[in-house]
């Protein structure tokens, strides 16, 4: 009797304990995702600004299976060919098909720093992720040829036509009115010791062709005046005020200043690249900030209020540099109103 009881008692307790500890839940375990497929409607795309809102290309993706009912985040990733997606631009690909407009693809091309207007090879792939903490899976990379455009802001313009460019307003440097008012400005390279020019209201001689008086590289405009004249070769900041009809050309040389390039007391000069119409320099930089300025003075200076695009802002915020290193700096002021810069680590 005693035996009977103790034996049953003990085995009963054991069974109980086992039951209490048995794992009774089936965990959902994620498996490595299967590679999604990717198809595109085109393999060569030429992007043109006038079609910015039209579809440029559409992608169709397959799905990726992570071994359970997953919510998978799909992304189209774009990168220059052969870079193994080291620097990539991404677009969410929530639906099976993702239509990309000309504008979007152009933004991507700009992000990938493709040269404008020429064919460039890029690669596209789909990445499928369930979490930042879990390895994504990718589709095969699909090759794509893209030609992009520079997205310039169009301002009301005037044209500088003169002996430095065979008196052709159509190809003359523009002056832009940012506020669509009577004030125009722009930067122009005058290569020779003295330059004669007119400022025209149209890209031809069919509009008002301003000449006028010229003293000390400035003066008063008139629609019937003599050619305007600037003395001294150089990179000029030209302003025109059609209210009081004044014009002024200020010669500028450009430099950087700030703790990122040394200190806020000493300028680091840039040199003018006549072929490209840009100011460039190879500059040693530290983590910090800098600004571009003309003639070692803050009268004309540029910063950046929106680091996500390359556009500069007059008197804007200091430009931040995250890491020290040698940088290629390019300052482009030659397209009126579209003043941009590029700081690239070597």
């Amino acid at each position: 009797m005693k035996m009977f009881f103790s034996r049953y008692l003990i085995s009963g307790l054991l069974i109980l304990l086992l039951w209490a500890c048995k794992k009774d839940e089936v965990k959902v375990i994620a498996k490595p995702g299967s590679a999604p497929s990717l198809a595109a409607t085109l393999d060569t795309v030429i992007l043109l600004k006038q079609y910015a809102d039209d579809q440029a290309i559409a992608f169709k993706r397959g799905t990726s299976d992570f071994g359970y009912n997953a919510v998978v985040k799909y992304e189209l990733q774009f990168a220059r060919k052969g870079t193994n997606f080291a620097d990539k631009a991404v677009v969410p690909a929530d639906s099976i098909t993702t239509a990309i407009t000309v504008r979007m693809l152009n933004t991507i091309a700009n992000q990938l720093e493709l040269e404008y207007g020429v064919y460039a090879d890029i690669e596209v792939r789909i990445s499928a992720t369930i979490s930042d903490n879990y390895p994504p899976t990718y589709s095969n990379a699909k090759a794509l040829v893209v030609s992009s455009y520079q997205d310039l802001v169009e301002y009301p313009s005037m044209y500088v036509a003169g002996d430095f460019q065979a008196w052709t307003p159509a190809t003359g440097p523009k002056l832009a009115s940012f506020k669509s008012d009577k004030n125009y400005e722009g930067y122009v390279w005058f290569p020779s010791g003295s330059t004669l020019f007119k400022i025209t209201s149209l890209p031809s001689w069919d509009g008002t062709n301003y000449g006028g008086t010229s003293t000390n590289n400035g003066g008063v405009l008139s629609g019937t005046g003599d050619n305007l004249k600037v003395t001294g070769a150089g990179y000029y900041f030209i302003t025109v005020n059609l209210d009081d009809k004044s014009w002024q050309a200020t010669r500028t040389t450009w430099s950087m200043i700030g703790d990122a390039v040394g200190s806020w007391d000493t300028d680091v000069d840039l040199t003018f690249d006549e072929a490209k119409g840009t100011w460039t320099g190879t500059v040693q930089m530290n983590a910090g900030a800098f600004k571009f300025r003309a003639n070692h003075s803050y009268d004309i200076n540029y910063g950046d209020n929106k680091p996500s695009d390359p556009i500069l802002n007059k008197g804007g915020d200091n430009i931040k540099v995250a890491a020290a290193g040698t940088y290629e700096v390019t300052l482009s002021l030659s397209i009126a109103g579209n003043y941009t810069y590029l700081v690239k680590k070597k």
């Binding site: 965990k27 959902v28 375990i29 994620a30 359970y68 997953a70 979490s131 879990y134």
Partner: peptide, 24 residues
């Protein structure tokens, strides 16, 4: 429903899409 990786570690914020509509 928590999703785990192969080592049994829970994946932060990853849950099973039980009604399979593509969003959690």
């Amino acid at each position: 429903k928590q999703v785990y990786d192969a080592n049994g570690k829970p994946l932060e914020g990853v849950y099973e899409d039980l009604n399979k509509d593509g969003i959690i």
